[in-house]
Design a protein around this nucleic acid. Structure first.
Lengths: 137, 137
DNA sequence: CCGTATCCGAGGCGATACTG
DNA sequence: CAGTATCGCCTCGGATACGG
């Protein structure tokens, strides 16, 4: 894998595909299927953000993961990173047009989740209950 | 965590959230953000499938992961599992109405991916090239 | 403030072997 | 055919410390 650069744990996201038989879905998931990307996109959809702002806006994220996440999104052309050589340094992140178009799709999923959350919860409850039943014998 | 049942490694998917500050997005990702769920949903969107059929349709998936994946989707009410006590046993999986509605959203993402794949690839190329540059000094 | 480097644990997932 | 049980790798990601 040609270890040439300074070893940022790899910017390539999850990792290499191999088969490619599906549609482009695996491709998307390998991009934004990780723990934080989507949340960052959503936050940035609301407007320009600085590093700290992002970190505060996305509750559990660590500094390391925020860095990795925005770098990958930048690499994919989903956001831009603007460095202002002030003191202290200041960096602004902003969604690109493509980033916003992705956000639209993500909104779709979020809306779906909101609309079906109750049904999912109820389904799980039933499933678990019935499962508990059959375990008594 | 009340280890009561037969230990299927947990059907709860990824694992428990904790903060909940975002929208319902983390929720969706915890459901279908794993390696296989979406691919199974997509395949089932085409029609009823049996276990083997699914496994063949989703190239890299192992027997274990297919089992876990369909169980979780069933638990969430996204698909139904019908067992026919024939010999040999025969089990059919079919998307529920809710499963199909999810599929619609997933299609949206897939279409987005298809529409922007080239742009993403190009963006990466540029990013990596420029990165290689600055590494020479 | 904005990163990067290193260490390390947790668990997702694959391989394999075994039941009904 | 459909599913379960074990085992172990390997990668993601959190904690921490340091640099510009």
């Amino acid at each position: 894998m040609s270890v040439g650069h300074t070893g940022v744990t790899t910017l390539e996201g999850p990792q290499g595909h191999e088969h490619e038989q599906d549609c482009g879905i695996r491709e998307v998931l390998d991009r934004i299927g990780d723990k934080w990307s989507v949340l960052v996109v959503v936050e940035l959809a609301a407007g320009v953000r600085r590093f700290r702002q992002l970190q505060r806006a996305v509750p559990g994220i660590s500094q390391r993961m925020l860095t990795l996440t925005v770098r990958r999104l930048e690499r994919d052309g989903l956001l831009t990173r603007s460095v202002y050589p002030t003191v202290p340094p200041q960096v602004e992140y902003e969604l690109t047009k493509m980033g916003h178009s992705l956000h639209t799709q993500v909104r779709g999923l979020a809306d779906w989740a909101a609309a079906h959350r109750d049904a999912v919860v109820e389904s799980r409850r039933r499933f678990d209950r019935e499962r508990a039943q059959s375990e008594l014998q």
